[in-house]
């Protein structure tokens, strides 16, 4: 029950932030739009209000009683007995890896950053046996993709300090 209420409240709060914080600041109303035509903030406001109401209904229904017998989702069961902190830690590592990729691209180039991200991702999935294949995917594939996109579409990927002698 509590998780259901929490979920509903979370949804309402998210839409509430959009409605009360983001829209007033980030959706300006140009003066030249005629009075009878709906202004730019009309639609986002409508949708946010709908979202808040829906979130409250979700919470209220969870309060009224579990809608469905909680069926444990097999996809949400960790393999092996690990605690919640480990799961949260793994998730934090993924987000960190994604963020680092975006930060690193302008510094070390797209291809090198992609190699690092892929290698991290493969290791994070717990893969330890097929490391040779992992290395091939992490190193050879990005280089091949960069060459392919460069020749087929002429895409220029962001270059880093090592690009001069590595060629990418």
């Amino acid at each position: 029950m509590w998780s259901g209420i929490l979920r509903g409240v979370l949804v309402s709060v998210l839409f509430g932030i959009v409605l009360f914080v983001l829209i007033p600041v980030h959706v300006p109303r140009p003066a030249f739009i005629p009075g009878f035509a709906p202004p730019p903030d009309m639609w986002p406001r409508t949708v946010s209000i709908a979202g808040i109401v829906l979130g409250l209904i979700v919470a209220a229904m969870a309060w009224a009683g579990p809608v469905a017998r909680p069926v444990p989702d097999p996809e949400k069961q960790p393999a092996g007995a690990v605690g919640l902190p480990v799961l949260v830690g793994r998730f934090a590592l993924v987000v960190l890896a994604f963020a680092l990729f975006v930060v690193l691209v302008p510094l070390i180039g797209f291809v090198l950053a992609a190699i690092l991200l892929t290698a991290t991702a493969i290791l994070l999935t717990g893969e330890r046996r097929r490391l040779v294949w992992g290395a091939i995917v992490a190193v050879a594939l990005p280089v091949a993709l960069a060459l392919f996109f460069n020749s087929a579409l002429g895409t220029q990927f962001p270059k880093g300090p090592f690009s001069a002698f590595l060629g990418f």
Partner: peptide, 12 residues
């Protein structure tokens, strides 16, 4: 799908 695999290590 990737994040699920990393967090739960429970491939479909």
């Amino acid at each position: 799908e990737l994040i699920k695999l990393i967090v739960f290590r429970n491939p479909p």
